[in-house]
């Protein structure tokens, strides 16, 4: 049973498709990097998984239950705009969230808030910094004891120290409870060290979906003469060319032919290659 799976999911807002024909499955216990440029459909996908948005086509399931306008009890969602009751203190907010949930761990919330340096529990949520608000929102999400944690841009408004603090809390959650996590970001560098699964979305479509090590092992960056590209095997993802030299990103390329140098791509160049290809397809 996958914590999250999509079958041909599409979402249309009036005339614009935010997502189209998205199919993927997130295996249990993975930390998934949901990566893509701004406006790629990441937020729509997460809001859909949280049961806030209904798919126009296809079906999205959390723990094998179609998400039909309801958040699955085992799912916690951190929304991008961090909706919190701003006029309450952190303590009151905790009480409010506890009251709104059947399953709630006050201990877990206390533990997480205790790890956060910058959060005074008697301060009004409104007076906290944006970063502290994000951390409080994550604490509230963990209070539900989720088995799937959906985080929409959790690191975007954090300073480096708070970022490390927050990632550590999330990773500890994974270590302690085996929680599956889907983290979105438009910055891959935020997520590289902590994720083991890549879901690359652009133009409303899934471009890459898979275990990061496996995805990297499947691809090759080949550098060689422009004139000699016919010798290269595999599927061409994207290419950059100078007058003489071609740099090609390929899937399933096999060994580099004579005159070409082949290396395994790092995650950045792989993602960049796919995004470039996707943009070129859209511009055509």
């Amino acid at each position: 049973m996958n914590p999250l799976s999509a079958t041909a999911v599409g979402k249309r807002y009036r005339t614009r498709w935010a997502l189209r024909e998205c199919s993927f499955a997130v295996p249990e216990g993975k930390v998934v990097a949901l990566v893509g440029p701004n406006g790629a459909g990441k937020s729509t996908l997460l809001r859909m998984a949280a049961g806030l948005v209904r798919p126009t086509t296809g079906e999205l399931r959390t723990f094998d239950t179609p998400t039909d306008g309801r958040t699955h009890p085992d799912v916690s969602f951190l929304a991008q705009d961090r909706p919190l009751y701003r006029d309450l203190t952190v303590r009151e907010l905790t009480r409010a969230c506890a009251a709104m949930n059947d399953r709630w761990s006050a201990d877990r919330v206390r533990e997480v808030l205790g790890l956060l340096a910058g959060v005074d529990r008697d301060a009004k949520v409104d007076t906290l910094s944006a970063g502290a608000r994000t951390q409080v929102a994550i604490a509230m999400a963990l209070g539900r004891l989720p088995r799937l944690l959906l985080l929409d841009e959790p690191l975007s408004d954090l300073d480096p120290l708070a970022r490390d603090e927050t990632l550590r809390i999330i990773m500890t959650e994974v270590a302690d409870r085996g929680t599956t996590v889907v983290v979105s970001s438009h910055l891959l560098s935020d997520l590289r060290e902590v994720c083991d699964h890549l879901l690359l979305v652009d133009g409303g479509r899934v471009q890459v979906d898979g275990d990061i090590e496996e995805v990297l092992a499947e691809h090759r960056v080949l550098v060689g003469p422009v004139a000699d590209e016919s010798a290269v095997g595999g599927t061409l993802i994207s290419a950059t060319r100078t007058g003489r030299q071609s740099t090609l990103l390929l899937r399933g390329a096999g060994r580099a032919p004579e005159g070409w140098a082949g290396t395994e791509p790092d995650l950045e160049s792989l993602v960049m290659g796919y995004l470039r290809a996707s943009r070129e397809r859209r511009l055509r």
Binding site: V31, D164, R168, M171, T172, V174, A175, E193, V194, C195
Partner: peptide, 8 residues
């Protein structure tokens, strides 16, 4: 994880 913030 507590020492280095990596994925467990």
């Amino acid at each position: 994880v507590e020492a280095t913030t990596v994925n467990p």
